[in-house]
Amino acid sequence: MRIGSAKQTYAADEAIFKTDVQRLWFGLLALALILFPFVSSDYWQLLACLIAVNVIAATGVMILTGFTGLVSLGHAAFMGVGAYTAAYLSNHLALPFWLSIPAGGFAAAAVGAVFGIPSLRVKGLYLALTTIAASFILQSIFFNWTAVTGGARGLTIEPASMFGHLLVTPGAIYWIAMPIAALSVWWARNLLRTRVGRAFIAIRDRDVSAELLGIDLLRYKLMSFALASFYAGMAGAVWVYLFRVITPESFRLIESIFFVAAIIVGGLGSVRGAIFGAVFMTLVPELLKIGASDLAPYWPDAVKLLSPVRTIVFGALIVGFLMFEPLGLNEIWLRIRQRFALWPFRT
């Protein structure tokens, strides 16, 4: 236990960072994120961009599933809507990235809200299954609406540009992806401090009593779907500028499962959990790949086994966390922080 806090105002007690120590740590983290592209290789910058994209999308899923309690297994498809929208606007209307990325978000939000409509009548796992339906229906549109999506062959887009510079390398896209990820996280954190976030959590915990306390269920469920899909759409749009090629294959059901798995592994019900989960689940397959290529000289089968081993590890992480650490990495983090709260005076 820290000794009593001496907060003078309610505003101070409602702040995200309540102590100077927390603000210091946050400052150091921000500094590290700013310095990162100057000290890292292309490979790690690409990975950082991918992590940023996944943080944006996972934070959205956290809002929908972790806070509002509505399980979505269609999020990759909503991400696809954002990606195709951004690509179309960029290719055909020559929209700059700073317009097409939010536009992708809005398009996904609209689609997400439509597929959220069943959530009023359909609950729990049944809802999860309707979102799988959403995923397949959208996937089919990506495949068949060739005029816009390029069908199975997909489409490519021109690099984003800023002040006349083309943003081609991951190191350049980093400056788009990371700030949007930071913004996404900050938004989600703010949401929880207001009536909207409280309403979401109330719906998750007990929707019928939430309604009797004055919360319009349909409105807030759709709001949650729209906001989460907005996040997904933005993530998809950033993703497009990162890879500059899209095919329907990029937004399959398994990717949607990836995001739900990420928030479970990270820790349901906290923004920090979404970040932890996205970082961890993005890094694990990469670490396996590095491990396999390191092993290859001694054990030629290692590379061949990489794909199935990744599949197994992915499944085992979901099963393992749900069985042994249901509150995820965030809980582990909190335990560690608790231990060192008074370090070095007591360990």
Partner: peptide, 10 residues
């Protein structure tokens, strides 16, 4: 439900 999804993957 998510555990069964994980098992499917395994």
């Amino acid at each position: 439900f998510m555990v069964t999804i994980g098992l499917a993957s395994i």
